[in-house]
């Protein structure tokens, strides 16, 4: 199982090199340095990228099946916001991300990154309650894109929900149950 996971990571790394052409690499694969993945419009540093990885992992955690971090959905979120959102959205995203990083948990006075997984979950659940618009916008963009990336991931589409490229049928009155 563990070996499998390492192989999968290695394969992912290779795949990312090939697929993206540009260097779209998660921070944990890089030697060092504060510059993050090859975004065109936004500047995201390594610390922010690692934080985003923890946010998506909290949204869709690893279980018997891979979670968002392993599926690199934090990088997918960044790529989509960078390529498919307006400059205004991108400003809100980066400012919201900064606000999110600095925000303290009302219950413990601790920042998200330093919380336990259970407290992180509780932290995200109350995001909507606070009145910083930018943080809310950052969070909703992240959640939407994370879900999109998850539902459209190879893992979900081939192993878990089975997307059919070639259905070869239309059954108009399929009886349920």
């Amino acid at each position: 199982m563990n070996g499998n996971r390492i192989n999968r990571r290695a394969a992912l790394r290779t795949m990312l090199y090939i697929a993206a052409g540009t260097m779209v690499l998660p921070a944990c694969f890089r030697e060092s340095g504060s510059k993050t993945i090859g975004l065109v419009n936004m500047t995201i540093n390594e610390e922010q990228e690692l934080l985003l990885a923890e946010v998506v992992e909290t949204l869709i955690p690893s279980s018997q099946t891979p979670g968002a971090k392993e599926l690199l959905l934090h990088l997918f979120v960044l790529k989509m916001v960078d390529d498919c959102h307006s400059p205004e959205d991108q400003r809100n995203f980066t400012e919201g991300l900064e606000g999110f990083a600095a925000m303290e948990d009302p219950a413990t006075g601790t920042k998200f990154i330093n919380l336990s997984p259970a407290d992180r979950l509780r932290f995200l659940k109350q995001i909507g309650d606070q009145d910083n618009d930018k943080i809310t916008m950052f969070y909703s963009m992240t959640k939407r894109r994370c879900i999109q990336g998850y539902m459209n991931s190879k893992n979900v589409m081939t192993d878990l929900k089975k997307y059919e490229l070639i259905p070869g049928r239309y059954i108009a009155d399929f009886k349920i149950g």
């Binding site: 989509m80 498919c84 959102h85 459209n152 991931s153 589409m157 081939t158 997307y163 490229l165």
Partner: peptide, 17 residues
């Protein structure tokens, strides 16, 4: 023609640009 949704960089969306 034979690509899966996850093989598209933007999962079939067109970019802002």
């Amino acid at each position: 023609t034979n690509m899966y949704p996850y093989e598209f960089d933007h999962r079939l969306e067109t970019t802002y640009t």
